[in-house]
Amino acid sequence: MMKNLVYINGNSHLNKAAFEVVTYAKKLGGDITVLASGNMESSLLSSLGNYGAKEVIINRGITGNDDQQIAAWIASKAPDANNIIFSHDFQGKAIAPRLSVRLKAGLIAGAVSLPEADGSVKVNVFSGKAFGFVKTHSTQRIISLLPNSIAPEETGTHCGVTEINEEVGANKVRVISVKKPEGAIPLPEAELVVSAGRGLKGPEHWGMIESLANSLGAATACSRPVADIGWRPHHEHVGQTGVAIRPNLYIAIGISGAIQHLAGVNGSKVIVVINTDSEAPFFKAADYGVVGDAFEVIPKLTEAIHKFKAAQ
């Protein structure tokens, strides 16, 4: 029987990425044990059984995000695991490589689908401009899954949760503070994103972008020059050198669609482009396009969404 281990962050809320990694492990076949560290309530964790977990073990002894401690703990549980699955987030990008060296197990970083018939796994390469198929040569395999690559599937019922309290080495990465942005939806997790570029002409026009985003329940993003001139905060910058996102819907307003911008958003399921210039390169990557002036189109679109929501 195959044995799969899944790690999830037990300090945040139980996010969609957690359901995705458990669903992914379920589809690989075999038993699934979820390992978590942090202070999340056991009653929440037991819902991972619905996605296929056989059991959850939460370690209360590891309180921070020190990947050295977490990797050491996972390694102690891993001797007979065939697959170890992470989300390709800030933690998966730290713990999975460590574990790869520790266990001498090949790491497939940024997987976007289940293994092919030949055992290779598809990953995003060249910032989404191509795919690669990666194989591991080791007996154990580690996979970090790019968020929004697989739809979570509920198949079972709640599972048992075991709480343990094991300190593994010293916590060397001490957390001083955590700043949570007020009310805003974190960009990497957002399913809907409204993004604007230099076509908006100045920071004073972002009220219109925020109203549109609010009407949809979307997060806001921007192109690089907009963050560089200081019209918008740096964490909103998407693209090759900013955040890479793969929401279900990406609405790009007044953004030309330079290749470096596309590199961060080309994994989006559906792209809507609004631009005055019908020759803007972004239209080639778009599913729906509106050739028009943002200052006229956006209020109309926002109104249409309010109307649609009210009728629902």
Binding site: F90, I176, V178
Partner: peptide
Amino acid sequence: IIGGVEEV
């Protein structure tokens, strides 16, 4: 980090 910025 997920849902915020951590100072360490």
